[in-house]
Structure formats: structure tokens, C-alpha cells
Nucleic acid binder design. Structure first.
Length: 294
DNA sequence: AAACAGGAACCAC
DNA sequence: GTGGTTCCTGTT
């Protein structure tokens, strides 16, 4: 891959293992929206439009400086996905899954945003999750002017900690409103140091995350995988459970058994394996109760 | 319009 | 530590 600056922005020339659609539609991020030609997203204080251009990817209007201090890490461009795929392709099922979702990457997102987003995700579908996060950002996040439009950052911990339950309810949080407020307070008060979790081992970070209100095993694993660089995290929700039952087990299994299976079979690559399987199964409609039209 | 989808809290045991 | 029930709201 070559990184070159053009009049349009940063062009990632001949980039491999990268496809915006795969990256943003596998359930790891909630603030990227498809508009027919590209995706637009809000990350920290930046708004980015990203396009696939044949073998290249364009980060529209991005500067070289932003690429180096933000996007490179955000899109996990230091990691060798060729190597990851080579290792995982010994598993025949994953080999197929990786053919489908060849452009998936695990994003390195902001830990606080990821924590709150996945608390909201519990007992919710992606569409509604996105709506709630947008509402929270509009109400409690800082405004960014972008191309004459108003866009809002994801709120700071302090802002959500100070929010009233009533306001959180009006954003659509439902019964998760107190979870959001309590967990935001823990972060704002320094009782939970998210930066420190990055340096912790998986197990310790997992246990610490479970002390947050609204955070159980699934949410903790999502935060660990999508924002704290813990590749061994294997989030188990109803979807991945159905998929694994359909593709690997052929019988009902407990979450505990699934987690052990993933750890043994995929080890430190369990998280990325999960993403490939999730995307593949959703595209192929494997393991779903009802078949939807596409 | 009643039923359903979706993780974690909470309370029994 | 396991099992059953409840939480909220948009969709069908």
C-alpha cells in the first residue's frame, strides 16, 4: 500500500484487506452512515467521508497529519491482515467466511464511546442503537461545523455523568438510562481508568469492565475487542451463537462452551474470527430464524 | 394490536 | 453460580 496526499485527501493506494462496507456493516461501529457513494462518520473531533475507488481507498479531505495521528491506528493499518488470514484459513469454515468479508478490519475506537455504545446495544437492534447514539451526541456532544452542516461529537464522560435520567430517557435509552449515567460517572470520577485497561491483560480488564453498571460479559468483550486491542475477546450474542450452532456444532451450546471453543480454536485471533463469521452468516443468512429478502 | 427482539440486573435457590 | 423474570421501545 502507498499513502499519498492528493487534492481530494489521502489516498490509500493498492490497499489490501480493506473494504468500508465490510468494516462498517459487521456491527462494530455505530456512527458510520452509507449515503449511496461512500460512508460518513464522526471520530473524535473529525468528520470523515470514505470511498472505495477500485483498488484504492480515499479518506476525503484528510490531511497527512490526521492520517498519522488518527486514521492509521483507527483503521488498524499497522496490523498484517494477510498474516491473520493465513493463520485462520486452516479452518475451512473461516476460509469461506474470509472470502466473503475479505475487507473486514477491527477498528480501534475510543474506549469511552465504545463502552457507552455497547451498554446501549444490550437488548437492542443496530438501527435503534444508532438512533440513540445520534440523539445522545446531539444533546450532549460538542458541535463540529462540517461543510456548512452541524455534526456532533460523541459526548464526554463528564457530560453524560451530569445528564439527568429524564434527558437520557428522552434520547431513547430506556431502562439503560441509569446504566449510562452510572458508568459515565465511574469514568468521569476516575474510578474506572480506561487508558489503564489497555495495558492490562485480557482477564483483568474483563473483570474491571464487569464492575460497570450495564456491562455484562458480551458488552465487556465488545469494548475489549473494539477499543482496547484485546484480540482474544470473543463477544457472544444471540447472533454469533446461532451462527456457531449452525456452522460448527449442530446442537445447542452454552455461552461458556462457546467461549472455551473460540479460545482454543482461534486463540488471540478469536475476535477477528468472530467478525468474519458474523458478516458471512448475515450475508448468507445462515442460522437466522427468519429469512429476509435482500 | 398483542407479540416479539435483544443483554444485563436482580432476586431466589 | 445457576435459573427465571423483568427492564424499554421500535417493529411487525
Amino acid at each position: 500500500m502507498n499513502v499519498i496526499q492528493t487534492e481530494e485527501g489521502i489516498l490509500l493506494q493498492d490497499i489490501e484487506h480493506f473494504h468500508p462496507g465490510h468494516i462498517f456493516e459487521c456491527g462494530q461501529a455505530f456512527r458510520w452512515n452509507w449515503d449511496g457513494t461512500g460512508y460518513t462518520g464522526v471520530v473524535q473531533n473529525k468528520v470523515l467521508r470514505i470511498f472505495q475507488r477500485g483498488r484504492h481507498v480515499l479518506l476525503q479531505d484528510a490531511s497527512l497529519e490526521d492520517y498519522h495521528i488518527l486514521w492509521k491506528h483507527y483503521f488498524d493499518l499497522d496490523k498484517d491482515y494477510g498474516l491473520i488470514k493465513k493463520s485462520l484459513s486452516r479452518d475451512r469454515i473461516l476460509a469461506k467466511a474470509m472470502e466473503y468479508g475479505w475487507g473486514i478490519r477491527i477498528l480501534n475506537q475510543d474506549p469511552f464511546e465504545t463502552l457507552i455504545s455497547f451498554i446501549i446495544s444490550s437488548n437492542n437492534g443496530i438501527k435503534r442503537i444508532k438512533g440513540i447514539i445520534e440523539n445522545l451526541s446531539k444533546r450532549f456532544g460538542e458541535k463540529i461545523s462540517w461543510k456548512g452542516r452541524e455534526v456532533f461529537r460523541f459526548p464526554k464522560a463528564e457530560s453524560l455523568a451530569a445528564a439527568s435520567i429524564e434527558d437520557l430517557l428522552s434520547c431513547g435509552c430506556g431502562y439503560r438510562a441509569p446504566y449510562v449515567k452510572k458508568t459515565a460517572s465511574m469514568v468521569a470520577d476516575g474510578k474506572l481508568d480506561l487508558d489503564r485497561l489497555k495495558k492490562c491483560q485480557y482477564e483483568e480488564a474483563f473483570e474491571l469492565l464487569l464492575t460497570c453498571s450495564g456491562v455484562g460479559p458480551k458488552v465487556a468483550d465488545c469494548v475489549l475487542l473494539f477499543s482496547l486491542e484485546k484480540g482474544e475477546a470473543f463477544p457472544i450474542d444471540v447472533w454469533i451463537k446461532r451462527i456457531m450452532v449452525a456452522l460448527y456444532f449442530g446442537r445447542e451450546v452454552s455461552a461458556k462452551e462457546l467461549k472455551a471453543f473460540a479460545a482454543e480454536r482461534f486463540g488471540p485471533l478469536a475476535g477477528i474470527a468472530q467478525q468474519y463469521l458474523f458478516y458471512y452468516a448475515r450475508e448468507r443468512k445462515i442460522g437466522q430464524k427468519k429469512q429476509r429478502d435482500g
